[in-house]
């Protein structure tokens, strides 16, 4: 009994490791055809299929876009590539939607590149960070240093509850209310890089604020009181005592929010536009890695599916790195 229990518990614990390892391996194996096909050039290749002909105006037609994408394909006839793709199709021919369009596209060489979604992901996340950091830290400072505790407590709980609202809600609100609002303010589209970034920012505010507040709460009262006793103002106490003390915790919360924004799908899927083109202005629509994954999976097979796994692998490695940095350097558990 004793031993069995220990073994089962041990098994459960190692399951965590197994899942993570399996994710990496499975993603790599599934992405292998694409990796062999495009190599690291995938990261800097801006084309995705042939996109020049397909520029859908709104995201409502996303499924149409997928159809167009497949029918619009490239000219270069490369027998070698064809063979290779055929081989792959043989390998994995039991996909869900193995429609005729897909086999048509296999006669040509299709170029896929991840640069557009990568750039879209990075920039929308950066916009989100620029927007949310001052607001979130403001909330954290307000809650822990300024607000009377009768106010700080309920507001604090409300912030934590808001952090748990499903991200799809933020996306939907962004599509119907915030997008049009921003468009009327700055012009341009109701779905754009800017809207996506801001919605992401609003989404991470409660998360970041709650974590930063916890970090600030670890500052010993005695330190603050000593500073006040010396005649310091609130600003000076916060700037010279609270921030230096809680620095690592606050930075950790920012990086963790960064990682969360990086991999966020639903909040962005509604409002980024889902177009494979660079946003020349911030008010232009573009694309991001999670959104490509969410929108294209069901309709892909063969090489185009493998390409998606390649994208997923990139996202996985990126966010894994970011989160690992946050956890291990800034938020180490004692």
């Amino acid at each position: 009994m004793e031993l069995i229990f220990k073994k089962i518990a041990q098994l459960s614990a190692s399951l965590v490791f197994v899942i993570l390892a399996a994710t990496t391996i499975v993603l790599y194996l599934s992405a292998k055809p694409a990796i062999e096909e495009f190599g690291l050039k995938f990261l800097i290749e801006p084309r995705w299929g042939v996109q020049e002909k397909v520029e859908p105006p709104a995201i409502a037609e996303q499924s149409d876009l997928k159809q167009l994408e497949k029918s619009a394909d490239i000219q270069t006839d490369d027998d070698f590539i064809k063979d290779e793709e055929d081989f792959m199709m043989d390998d994995e021919d039991d996909f869900i939607f193995d429609d005729d369009m897909e086999s048509d596209s296999n006669r040509n060489k299709t170029i896929y590149g991840a640069l557009v979604p990568i750039v879209g992901t990075v920039f929308s996340t950066l916009i989100a960070m620029l927007f949310s950091i001052p607001l979130a830290i403001g909330i954290a400072v307000f809650l822990s240093e300024i607000a009377p505790s009768a106010l700080a407590k309920p507001v604090g709980v409300a912030i934590e509850l808001l952090a748990s609202i499903p991200s799809i809600i933020y996306g939907m609100w962004g599509l119907f209310y915030f997008g049009p609002f921003i468009a009327s303010l700055f012009g341009g589209n109701t779905v754009s890089l800017l809207v996506a970034g801001l919605v992401l920012g609003i989404m991470v505010i409660p998360f970041m604020a709650a974590l930063s507040r916890d970090a600030i709460a670890t500052v010993p009262d005695m330190l603050k009181e000593s500073a006040y006793a010396m005649g310091a103002t609130k600003l000076e106490v916060i700037k010279d005592v609270v921030f230096p003390y809680a620095k690592t915790g606050i930075i950790g919360s920012i990086i963790l929010s960064f990682g969360r924004a990086l991999g966020e799908t639903m909040a962005v899927a509604f409002v980024i536009g889902g177009v494979y083109q660079f946003a020349e202005k911030v008010t232009d629509p573009t694309n991001s890695i999670p959104v490509v994954l969410a929108n294209s999976f069901a309709e892909s097979s063969g090489l185009s599916l493998s390409v998606l796994f390649y994208l997923a692998l990139i996202l996985f490695v990126l966010s894994f790195g970011v989160i690992a940095i946050a956890k291990f350097y800034f938020l180490r558990r004692k």
């Binding site: 965590v16 490791f17 899942i19 993570l20 399996a22 994710t23 499975v26 993603l27 963790l256 990682g259 969360r260 990086l262 991999g263 966020e264 799908t265 999670p290 994954l293 969410a294 999976f297 998606l308 796994f309 997923a312 996202l315 996985f316 966010s319 894994f320 989160i323 690992a324 956890k327």
Partner: peptide, 16 residues
């Protein structure tokens, strides 16, 4: 690892 997994992008879990 478990901590890192906690904040891994959910879409990647979907692809897996």
């Amino acid at each position: 690892l478990s901590d890192v997994m906690m904040s891994a992008p959910s879409i990647v879990v979907g692809t897996f």
